[in-house]
């Protein structure tokens, strides 16, 4: 079979290239994505802008600004930001300690494997683990009481709270940070450090003027990803707190199960708000990643 370019050369005239049927090959995939990803999401988004009678409206979106729902978004945002920020900083510190060679090399492989495990160990079992550790009868709670005489729960700590949930989320946030940022740290060339040293820069100057600017897109981008990761998580929070902590995904979960908001369309608006927030966070991630890849090409 002659290739199209050959045919054109042969005849020496400007024929339109033969209609290609190659796109047919991705039809099954596109159909699947349409049915199980795009249409369901679109349905929710459209529902957020319609009332019970099927007419277009912004009323549902306005409804989001009632105090109880705003409070849900606020606590969700707070937990997501706190766990992303802490997870990001701690994960970065661990990754730097391992990659920059201050720790023995052999630590690296087990650390990466463990990070792979821990970043996927979210959901119901993770909640159990933290209840068994920091719950009222948890190992650490008891140890603190028996060995040090500290009553953890008298200090105001509660695993079923903002800090409790944040602490739990860190268990998958930190490893995720390590997994994503380690390749970026590996991308720092030894020659950059040496070139900076040759030009008279101190270690601090090298970090401030070279390392942080180079890593900034990756750092911000990973932060956005961690944020979205925490913001959409349902299972961990639900298994840990039941519905005592009304973060957005849990309110939505309860709404889907039993229409606790007494307005199905407010449920759509709630979901729409979630999509918007994670969309912004992920757009930042993708945009930042593209920027850092452009530099490091």
């Amino acid at each position: 079979m002659p290739s199209p370019s050959n045919t054109i050369q042969h005849k020496g005239t400007h024929h339109a290239p033969a209609r290609s049927w190659a796109w047919l090959g991705v039809v099954p995939f596109l159909l699947f994505a349409l049915l199980f990803l795009l249409l369901p999401t679109a349905n929710i988004i459209v529902g957020a802008f319609r009332n019970a009678g099927g007419e277009w409206t912004l009323a549902n979106i306005y409804q989001l600004f009632q105090p109880s729902i705003l409070a849900s978004y606020t606590i969700s945002l707070k937990i997501s930001i706190a766990s992303a920020l802490l997870g990001g900083v701690i994960g970065f510190a661990i990754a730097v300690a391992v990659v920059q060679g201050d720790l023995p090399r052999w630590i690296r492989a087990p650390l990466m494997t463990f990070s792979g495990v821990a970043s996927n160990f979210a959901g119901v079992p993770l909640a159990f683990a933290f209840l068994a550790t920091l719950g009222r009868l948890g190992l650490v709670t008891l140890l603190l009481r028996d060995w040090f005489g500290i009553n953890l729960y008298a200090t105001g700590f509660n695993i079923l709270s903002f800090w409790g949930l944040t602490l739990t989320y860190l268990f998958f946030q930190i490893p995720l940070m390590i997994l994503i940022i380690t390749p970026a740290l590996d991308g720092l060339k030894r020659e950059w450090r040496e070139a900076a040293a040759m030009l008279g820069a101190t270690t601090t100057q090298y970090w401030l003027k070279v390392v942080f600017p180079i890593l900034l897109p990756s750092l911000l981008g990973t932060f956005a990803l961690l944020f979205a990761n925490a913001f959409g998580a349902v299972a961990t929070a639900y298994a840990l707190t039941g519905s005592s902590l009304s973060i957005v995904p849990i309110v939505l979960f309860a709404q889907i199960r039993g229409d606790v908001l007494q307005d199905p369309h407010l449920g759509y608006a709630l979901a729409f708000g979630m999509v918007m927030i994670t969309l912004v966070a992920n757009s930042i991630y993708l945009w930042m990643r593209a920027r850092s890849e452009r530099w490091l090409k």
Binding site: K189, A197, A201, P213, I214, L296
Partner: peptide
């Protein structure tokens, strides 16, 4: 230390700072 020697160095891989 290297940063006190006042020596110039050019590397095989250029080692230009990509962010600058």
């Amino acid at each position: 230390k290297p940063n006190q020697r006042n020596i110039g160095m050019v590397f095989q891989s250029y080692a230009l700072f990509p962010n600058l």
